Simulated assay, not measured.
Amino acid sequence: MDTKDYQRLFLQDVPLIDVRAPIEFQQGAFPSAINLPLMNDSERQIVGTCFKQHGQEAAIALGHSLVNGKARDERTQAWIERCHKQPEGYLYCFRGGLRSQLVQQWLHEAGVDYPRVLGGYKALRNFLLDTLETVAALPMVIVGGNTGCGKTLLINELTAGIDLEGIACHRGSSFGRTLVKQSTQINFENQLAVKMLKKQHAGCRHWVLEDESRIIGSNNLPLGLFNSMQQAPLVAIDDPFEVRVARLQDEYIDKMRLAFEQAYGQEQGWQHYDEYLHHGLFAIRRRLGLERFQQLRQRLVSALQLQRTGGNSEAHQQWLIPLLQHYYDPMYRYQLEKKTQRIIFRGNYAEVREFLMTYSQNSGE
């Protein structure tokens, strides 16, 4: 019943019980895993020190003495309850060795037979890293264009689209953070690999990705995937300026205020929203230049006051429009000009969408 069928575990979102210590789980785990540790962090550290100094037998004996009596009963009961809730699942430790075998043995003694993942976390992680290398070799098309042209919206409309920013929980700019905290680098890579594995298994033979820098917030794109993106053909969305301004105001102003207030309440939510906009502008102050930064900051303060008292957010365009004109648009144009030879299609949002919908047939894939 133990398994090495790592692909099935990820494709079917099979429930996993991770019996590693909490600190190991926090550093990296898998989307369908829950942490029910054999040892807590301090117990693991003590046993690890013993293993280095006195060897495996002494470490095992110490582990048994630490996880005994009431602690053992409580942890075993937690595993039993999870096994009953998810009888189709598996358990694992770091290498599929001592810890998962011991948990499996204790469960068996309690009348529950539950399988484990052979090779453990390390094997599952290596499988996903190999998956990232494999999927990075598939053909891909990159979607570029000025900020506000709907690149992420378009990618989420397409079967072959992979929303890198969505997986990273960050929109890639100084105003890009969301209310969801970014995951660790390992978890970002794991989630990305599982997403692409599922799409490939469902029939995707090429990818549509947004034109990203290597770093999205605090997460780095896998190097193999990023390198492939730098060589791939590119489509550019050219939407009217006023359309882009409206999109940005909706996404970064109106929806963010609503999201903060829904998460924290009206008063505290407004404070978070205010800090979010100020932080985004402050993060690019050096690139803006001190004089322009001060001008835009004063306009932001005024817009927030008007929005707070009157509920109207239109005054934000007083700083948003010049920010686009003097910072974001020149930066995106410069970056896109360096990629001119790779551009295979230009058009507005609807035209690019239509082109990408038929891209696989046109290219013979």
Rank of each mutant, 00 (worst) to 15 (best):
Q295R: 07
E275V: 10
L258S: 09
I284C: 09
Q266L: 13
M256A: 01
F282W: 09
H279N: 12
R292Q: 10
Q262K: 14
F293P: 03
R292L: 15
M256L: 00
E261W: 01
R287E: 05
R297A: 09
H278T: 08
E261M: 06
R292D: 07
F260D: 00
H278M: 11
L296A: 07
A259D: 01
K255Y: 03
G289D: 03
Q271W: 08
I253K: 03
E261P: 01
E261H: 02
F282E: 15
Q268F: 06
H272L: 04
L300A: 03
A263E: 08
V301T: 14
R299P: 03
G269F: 03
G265C: 09
L290I: 03
D274P: 02
E291L: 12
L300Q: 09
R299S: 10
I284A: 08
L300N: 05
R287Q: 10
R285P: 02
R297P: 01
H278R: 15
Q294G: 05
Q266Y: 12
D254I: 07
Q298E: 13
R297F: 06
D274Q: 15
L290Y: 04
G280K: 10
E251H: 10
W270L: 01
I284Y: 07
F282D: 14
Y276K: 06
E261Y: 00
Q294P: 04
L296K: 10
H279W: 14
F282V: 07
Q294N: 12
A263H: 13
H272A: 06
S302Q: 14
I253L: 08
I284P: 06
A283S: 12
Q262R: 15
L258M: 09
R287G: 05
H272F: 07
